[in-house]
Design a protein around this nucleic acid. Structure first.
Length: 429
RNA sequence: GUGGUCGUAGCUCAAUGGUAGAGCUCCAGAUUGUGAUUCUGGUUGUUGCGGGUUCGAGCCCCGUCGAUCACCCCA
């Protein structure tokens, strides 16, 4: 038994898991680029104040925070939106608006790990800054839908829960509830489906509201509500409105959301939200002490819940298998049948690799049978046998099992030509 | 941070308080120039860790670490 384990809530990525992770990254990247987003990255360690500024002191209980050797208070980032707001505001004059930026990287939260929740997780963040139009919100929702579709997650597997915090702001104004109760109220709404009704009613009574009135208002907030009219028209034109469900109980936990809020969630397994986001028009002003007032909206998708959903969705497995087959293994495996020819084999390995061919071979002397077995394990399409017939080389097609003799100096050209033809049939017999 | 369940080989799991096992994987051989199947052999454990009870603990008790579930939180 190994003496060391991963630290609580952290994960190893063995090759199989790393391939899965890379598949997720590449899918995120390719869809984001399809939408005209450019990639950025921010530091993993930030000043703890960066997170206090927008969320208050209590959030430090969920931060990986520590003092560095110069006694600076720093934290591993729990999210990237504050870093993005800092970056975008400090150099906003350098960029034409709107900014469509995405990022992929680790975030850290000191919480109790559970299924779908680890202490280090990887997030895909997509944000649009400098555009206050509802078209921006629609673009982000469309991106989140297309990301799911790109993973092979279909309409019957997921949906978007959509709401808007302004309908609640308006609700509170109409009932003359003081603005300082707004955050408390949104927390109550967030939990309204899970908490006990009498406790919820009691909390609402404290700020002068009744549960019946709130429930009635929520029921009335359907897709015909004027707050969703522009979004609905936009997403309907894209053919994407079918994925959207209005749900007024979605307010999102973050303090900084100001308008549209939405979540991506699965329909079959009751998992945690796959992604979440919304409009945060005041955050840039807050981060820049009012010097840069830039509207913004965005969402984040984590790798952990997404990975669980992919593993439970058969239609997603197909795309993963295709990706893994294309990525794994090598094109050719060099078999050293006669150790006297090893130096020629090494020269060929080097030449083939220089030509861009993926090549592997046994670095130590091995029986020929073992080497062919290794070639199969590596999913090689060709075995190149260096033996007594050198300077001729046996080129064996491992799928058709056909074998031909080729002059060594023609080997690279022959392999390159052969690789142009698509592999026939499955690599494993 | 609080409470429930669980922790045995690389993996999946057995083992009335009485000699720690099986399957799979991995390695080697049968097979010294060709992939499968099969057969044979082999490696791997302070039973998560530390105490306690007992003639004797994988099993019972306490603590601790980890996993998981529910709270909490969901940026």
């Amino acid at each position: 038994m190994a003496s060391f384990r991963t630290v609580k809530g952290f994960r190893d990525f063995f090759p199989e898991e790393c391939a899965m992770r890379n598949y997720i990254f590449e899918t995120w990247r390719s869809v984001a680029r399809r939408y005209g987003f450019v990639e950025y990255e921010a530091p993993v360690v930030e000043s703890t104040d960066l997170y206090r500024k927008k969320s208050g002191d209590e959030i430090t209980s969920q931060l990986f925070c520590f003092h560095d050797k110069a006694d600076r208070e720093v934290s591993l980032r729990p999210e990237v939106t504050p870093s993005l707001a800092r970056m975008a505001t400090t150099r906003h004059r350098d960029f034409k608006k709107p900014l469509k930026w995405f990022q992929i990287g680790s975030c850290f939260r000191y919480e109790e790990p559970q299924e779908g929740r680890t202490r280090e997780f990887i997030q895909f963040n997509a944000d649009i800054l400098g555009d206050a139009s509802s078209g921006t919100d629609a673009e982000l929702i469309a991106l989140s839908i297309d990301v799911m579709l790109a993973f092979g997650i279909k309409a019957e597997d997921f949906a978007i829960r959509l709401s808007n915090r302004q309908i609640w702001t308006q609700y509170l104004e109409e009932r003359q509830v003081p603005a300082e109760h707004s955050a408390t109220f949104l927390q109550i709404v967030d939990k309204i489906e899970r908490a006990k009704p009498d406790e919820t009613a009691c909390k609402l009574a404290n700020i002068g509201l009744s549960l019946e009135d709130v429930r009635a208002f929520m029921a009335a907030a359907d897709e015909n509500h004027p707050a969703f009219a522009a979004l609905r028209a936009d997403l309907t034109a894209r053919g994407l409105w079918q994925y959207v469900r209005i749900d007024a109980s979605i307010v999102r936990g973050l303090a900084y959301y100001t308008g549209t809020v939405f979540e991506v969630f699965d329909l079959k397994h009751g998992l945690r939200a796959v992604a979440g986001g919304g409009r945060y028009d005041k955050l840039c002003a807050l981060m820049s002490d009012g010097s840069v007032d830039m509207p913004a909206a965005g969402f984040a998708m984590g790798d952990v819940v997404l990975g669980i959903l992919l593993s439970k969705t058969p239609s997603a497995q197909f795309a993963i298998t295709e990706y893994l087959n294309a990525q794994q293994g090598v094109d050719a495996y060099v078999v050293v049948a006669d150790e006297a020819q090893r130096c020629h084999a090494l020269a060929a390995v080097q030449a083939l690799r220089g030509a861009g061919v993926r090549v592997d071979f046994s670095m130590a002397a091995q029986k020929v049978g073992k080497q062919f077995q290794a070639a199969e394990n590596q999913k090689a399409r060709f075995a190149l046998v260096f033996g007594a017939e050198f300077p001729e080389v046996q080129v064996k097609n491992l799928i058709s099992r056909e074998q031909t003799l080729v002059q060594n100096e023609a080997l690279v050209a022959t392999v390159l030509e052969a690789l142009k033809h698509p592999a026939i049939g499955p690599l494993i017999a």
